[in-house]
Nucleic acid binder design. Structure first.
Lengths: 292, 292
DNA sequence: TAATCGCCATAGATACAGTCTATATCTCCT
DNA sequence: AGGAGATATAGACTGTATCTATGGCGATTA
């Protein structure tokens, strides 16, 4: 006869309380139901598990042996259930996000702070990488979500567009004469341009824009981080193409100013990437909820 | 939603094999059944446990956490089932017997040897004590069965009568003139008598017998072990009242001979005591079977 | 000694849920 | 494009876990 694991729960409580009636109460069952379950177990093993006395039940030798195992097993199961509840409530668990350092710093960080404050039990993992790397991480299951620039076209990915960013050209005091004015593209090209390195989305966007107008933009300087882009512009090494939101502090304090153009630069959006048709962890779901 | 522990078994196999179909095979179920069980679990926890892919399933973060616990739990359960099978087959377990040393030595031992040979995995515990002590042990659950002299009258006890023993008077070379003769009770009383100590059943039996004939038997010597009863008789200190089966060796070799009486001494039986209405351990049941 | 209370066991009815079969959908591979 | 193999879904069925009602047994109390 096959043994139903549900019976073990009944056995556990019967042994623990020393009474079928008590066990029934603890499990919100009736006493005959418990009695029946125990009987099934005993038939299953072909061994008596309890002595029935007038004041309850008592484990037999064999029952006591079984109890040793079942007790441990039941403890594990209740720990498991606690843990799962904790994961669901976000008292526990982890949130793994992929993205670029600049987006982390300027965009994700405030949300992360808020998230961490609200759910201090959830461990945070940040994996930085380029957009294609982030997509790979996602597909390999190494992160729960990615934060990257739009547009992304990938059948396997679910994209949640989010914050809008506006790239622009900025310069420092060295080019103060340009402040307030509006430039044409060909005029701009006469100044030294500082761009982010070749394989970034922003770089591709601006290159295509100039090509669309028949020009070719070639940077004087190429850098690999947004911080350098800003620093070089401040020091007057050229005009940087940078996300306006990332230099809001410098624009405010006046150490940089925007160089406006007579054409409109396309805004870009930040998107949250997740795997399409794959369930999100509670933590990831809560984080996306928070961002929206 | 309440969680059915049976689902954990399904979860375990699904996670272990990485496939609902495989799990179904292992559990002799159909794939939809497994699919359903997993779904129940997921709804119960409010959390996805698996990613479904075209080549099977894979644990989610939360599923992996659950698996840590469930795996341990399932291992314990399978160990439990193994252990119970071992107990039933008598590859394991213990047999606790209560009784007097003399009965152990002369009567139980050969059966125990046989039992041990047949079931070497079963541990043997012998608890010696007087008949009332043995009964107490039994009622306290400290032994599985008792081996004592009959008759026993106790509503709570189940008595299986077994071997028959015959008590008799024996003497050694010092009283060689009595060999072959038949004595009357009053004649016997003129010789020094050696009896087992006051609180034994044999002692009570013989005292009552003499009283029934209007005599009073008073021992010259009282001893506390059967071995001494034999030894004293051999050395000619008197005539011992002893169980014939316990001195079969001495009677054969001639170091003792039986002093026959003109009245018949009642035979006594050895009985196996167990608790009435209480289940026997497999080991105890097997032992009683062996003795019968 | 009778009565009562608190256990567990048993019997029989019922309803739910775990299973099954059949089918749909999706992905991957040829 | 089509087939193989995976999971999901729908709907019917059956088995069994559960309930109510009752009985028996033993201990405790009056």
């Amino acid at each position: 006869m096959a043994i139903n694991y549900e019976w073990y729960k009944v056995f556990y409580w019967a042994a623990k309380t020393g009474s079928l009636s008590q066990a029934a109460k603890a499990l919100y069952l009736t006493q005959p139901s418990v009695s029946h379950a125990i009987k099934q177990l005993e038939e299953g093993f072909g061994v008596a598990l309890f002595y029935r006395t007038s004041k309850g039940v008592e484990l037999t030798q064999e029952g006591a042996v079984l109890y040793e195992y079942i007790e441990q097993s039941q403890i594990l199961l209740s720990l498991a259930e606690e843990k799962m509840a904790a994961l669901k409530n976000l008292d526990s668990g982890e949130l793994r996000i992929g993205g670029s350092d600049s987006l982390f710093k300027h965009y994700v960080l405030p949300y992360l702070e808020q998230f961490h404050e609200r759910h201090p039990g959830v461990k945070l993992h940040l994996n930085h990488g380029t957009t294609p790397e982030v997509i790979t991480f996602l597909k390999e299951g190494r992160i729960d979500l990615g934060v990257v620039r739009m547009p992304i076209v990938d059948q396997q990915l679910q994209v949640t567009e989010s914050f809008q960013l506006q790239d622009c050209f900025v310069a420092g005091a060295r080019y103060a004469e340009l402040k307030g004015g509006v430039m044409s593209l060909d005029k701009l090209l006469q100044y030294p341009i500082i761009l982010f390195s070749r394989n970034s989305r922003a770089r591709m966007t601006i290159t295509e824009l100039f090509q669309g107008y028949g020009y070719s933009i070639k940077p004087e300087i190429e850098v690999g981080s947004v911080d350098l882009l800003i620093e070089f512009a401040r020091r007057g090494l050229g005009i940087s193409y940078v996300t306006r939101e990332f230099v809001s502090k410098e624009l405010e304090e006046g150490s940089l100013f925007e160089v406006r153009l007579d054409v409109s630069l396309p805004p870009s959006r930040v998107g949250i990437l997740t795997m399409r048709n794959m369930p999100l962890s509670s933590a990831a779901r809560a984080f996306i909820q928070l961002v929206r």
